[in-house]
Design a protein around this nucleic acid. Structure first.
Lengths: 339, 339
DNA sequence: ATTTCTCGGTTAAACGTTTAACTGAACAAA
DNA sequence: TTTGTTCAGTTAAACGTTTAACCGAGAAAT
């Protein structure tokens, strides 16, 4: 049968309160008593019952992790890495993480995840874009929420974000430093904050280099930022401009689409056109040539989200924060000095 | 403040035991009383406290899900899908799933995952190959274990497996039905049961078609079943054989390696060589040509593992089972009739 | 009419931990 | 010597649920 605090108390010759005080590192206990109790805990391999502890403390010891189905099933494990970052951080702590996905088209009639409904989590991490109706429904809860890689206009939630502006600058400066002046920008929907900020970085880098960007070299639309749209916008870019020698695609999916367009139209990468992406998805290395990209530290995003949420749970007077996690450029073979 | 059973009892004008009996669908309660209580539960939005319930029932309401780091971070979300299959199945039930990864080189000195140590799970799902030292250490626990996509010689655990033999037959028969007789098999380490069984299927399909397989067309080694090794074994196959017109690679990674070798050596797929893989990883569709493959139903593997574990938890007299989840062949453009 | 049984509810102990209030011994201050 | 304080432990109630044993009313059997 399982060992309880009573067994430890009996064997150590102390009260159950003493054992509890030792387990919880209360400094009222003398070091002699503490040692004796710890020795007994070890000998009996005692672990406190989380259900008993949670009942008394009115906590659950769990954190909910929510993302959309499609995000978790993407070929590149972007959100899987964010989740694992949080799980690594939680691993030897006092919280478990419960993951669930919601439909990308979640509506007001859909129920919230069960761990919210039955109050089995103390706080929530939301990874990536989620439907606004989910956020609305969440608003009825008082538990703290941390949002990763998505911005919402809810000032009650902390946000862990990619430093997209700086990433856009890094990508564009890399091309400029390699002598490129006629640089195209391939983006999806600039109502999407990440894409907007990456374009912002693209523009800032031009300003800093005293190069006047040409709006005709900025191709965006309201389409999904996927390969196909990357392909389409690349076609638009290259048919309406001459002498483009560098391209910064706002994410790797679009970069791959751009790469396909260039190959289909007999451009050589990087001899004719240098190409930079953003994300550093796993597939990048398989590409020919391997893609230069802005690396997003997914594991760290998840770990930071977890740390911020836990600190809010421990001290609910902490104000929500917005944290920009830094990025770096990984130079591979899809960029080179202009000839 | 949170609603408890006391609030419901007070408002409904019954005892807390009555409310508990209603919540738990005990048939001693009259339907009049039941309706009254259910109405009050709904009005107050009452959810039972899992910690109180778990304390009394001496259960945790959680299932642990364990896999190795590298498995979870693979580019193709094979294990992510197995996990999601389990999570989908758990979603509206009475168990939560706690996921953790362990190191692929877990040793006897590494501690078991925390949710085992502190007895926060009622049962465990192991996904994929895990280090033998982990299994040894797990042996000290009495909780039920279900293993997915991995075989171990522990008869105390249920196994949910891919029907590899039948998959190997499907792959090989597809080639044979397209007129191929000189078919190569590309495998990794045949001490790995899955690979061994797929080869077994390859052989059985030959027997059924009264085609004598040539052992010189079976290329395996003790290497990792990855792309590079697929490339290497393809080289070995094609340099030591003439007129190979079909290849069955034991997994998609190796199939991709084979594909690269063929392209590097001016073979046309499928005109010169037809190629079949096994797994149906996400990348298959991106390949040129898209890969014919044996589709492994990952989501279903996970869901079945969950169902089997829950049935064992509910009735611990149930004997461990070995379940083979069926596969199917997806014919894409990497195979065609022999000319 | 009396006794026994069934039904539908209720009472109260238990689960394992936490912690406020209590306690006795030892020490310090008056 | 007396009084007050501190220390290091202990006692017992509380947390929210489950459920065995209990209970009163009504029905059935004698």
């Amino acid at each position: 049968m399982n060992v309880t605090i009573k067994d430890v108390a009996l064997k150590a010759g102390v009260s159950i309160a003493t054992v509890s005080l030792v387990v919880n590192n209360n400094n009222r206990i003398s070091s002699e008593t503490r040692k004796k109790v710890l020795k007994t805990i070890k000998a009996l391999n005692y672990y406190p019952s989380r259900s008993a502890r949670d009942l008394v403390s009115k906590k659950t010891g769990n954190i909910g992790f929510i993302l959309t189905d499609d995000h978790f099933l993407r070929t590149e494990p972007f959100y899987t890495k964010i989740f694992l970052g949080a799980e690594f951080e939680a691993r030897e702590g006092e919280y478990y993480i419960l993951l669930t996905t919601v439909k990308a088209d979640f509506t007001a009639s859909d129920p919230l995840p069960r761990f919210i409904r039955d109050k089995s989590v103390d706080g929530i991490i939301i990874a990536g874009k989620v439907p606004p109706k989910l956020i609305e429904k969440l608003g009825n809860n008082s538990m703290p929420v941390v949002v990763v890689d998505y911005q919402m206009e809810n000032k009650n939630y902390s946000h862990i974000l990619i430093d997209n502006i700086h990433g856009g600058i890094l990508a564009t400066e890399h091309l400029i430093q390699n002598g490129h002046k006629k640089i195209g920008f391939i983006g999806g929907d600039i109502n999407h904050p990440s894409i907007y900020e990456r374009l912002n970085g693209f523009n800032k880098a031009h300003e800093r280099a005293n190069i006047i960007p040409d709006n005709n070299r900025i191709k965006t639309n309201t389409g999904y930022p996927d390969r196909q749209n990357g392909y389409n916008l690349a076609r638009e870019l290259f048919t309406s401009n001459k002498n483009i020698t560098g391209v910064f695609a706002c994410n790797d999916a679009m970069a791959i689409g751009v790469m396909h367009y260039l190959k289909d139209n007999n451009y050589k990468i990087p001899q004719d056109v240098s190409l930079v992406g953003f994300d550093d998805v796993e597939a990048d290395l398989l590409l020919d040539p391997p893609l230069t990209t802005v690396r997003v530290p997914k594991i760290e995003l998840g770990a930071e989200a977890f740390r911020v949420l836990v600190s809010q749970l421990k001290n609910n007077k902490i104000q929500p924060k917005k944290i920009l996690v830094p990025v770096e450029i990984l130079v591979r073979n899809s960029t080179k000095k202009i000839q």
